[in-house]
Amino acid sequence: MTKILKHRLFWPAAALVSLLAVNIIANQSFARITMRDGQLYGALIDILRQSAPLMLVALGMTLVIATRGIDLSVGAIMAVSGAVALTIIDSSPSPGSLGTVAVAVVVALLVSLVLGAWNGFLVSVLGIQPIIATLVLMLAGRGVALLITGGAITTVNSAPLKFIASGYLFILPFAFFISVAAIATVGLLERRTALGVLTEAVGINPEASRLAGVRARGIKWSAYVASGLLAGIAGVIYASNISAADANAAGFLIELYAILAVVLGGTSLMGGKFSIAGTVIGVLTVQTLGSTILFFGVPSAQSPVVFAAVVILVVLLQSDLVHRTAKRVWSQVRAEFTSSNQQDTEVAS
């Protein structure tokens, strides 16, 4: 029992489960999943579908945070990626053809990769603090995206593009499969090769890693490249969902939600040990929380208040001061309890 309680994913999972429970109790239809035309529908399915962009971004963010870094530019990269893809499709004579969409997506992802590599260069080669290095792209990226779309919201009518976010494969949304593929790829790449453990080592103790002969520069760099690429995919999904490239709204505040998801998943912002499964749970928690807030009739614009409360709660729970105080109170309570027990036994004897 204590083993389960001590497991690092216990509290994140407990939070998600209780959140789901609240929803189901408040609204029985929440858990209802219906089959229509061979496709599943329902609130839970929506959460899986809608969480895809955040899932991708948060996976990349997990890797970057593990190296003691942070990537603020993911939202901007999403905007650029969507703008690139949609502009190519829009300017093509056959926006509806699969080939056009494939080319557009590949180019968009290549651009995202380059942007990620740029962040990685600033951090790992020039040695600029991650917050600052990625701030540059966060600031300039949306401007670039706006330039690509010519300042307007580019809309296209393209069935293959639409399919990415809204289509179904077998009985489940296609976007869900993208999430699963990304989780599996990152998981395999990190845990089946030594990338994961070396990333953690660089995050936990950079100097010891250097002295052990680890190529820390390449490892840090790879994390930012992965983050950029994943954000690029997220940008394509976002654009597909609305069939438009909105340089201002795409990925707006997503860096913050991604960081929140990573932290909720039990990965420390100080770097080091990370958990892909934890991040997955964190993302689902954030997404479910978002739906819950909507469900309770709060306008989506007001939801940040709730998220702010969650962030503050989580950081307080993680802070030393609270830990120490809790420990002291607990030991006092226990001491009181045992001493009163003793008194009882003494009285009894």
Binding site: L256, I259, A301, Q302, S303, P304, V305, V306, F307, A308, A309, V311, I312, V315
Partner: peptide
Amino acid sequence: LAGLFLARG
């Protein structure tokens, strides 16, 4: 960041 969320909300 929490402040940003809070005030915006």
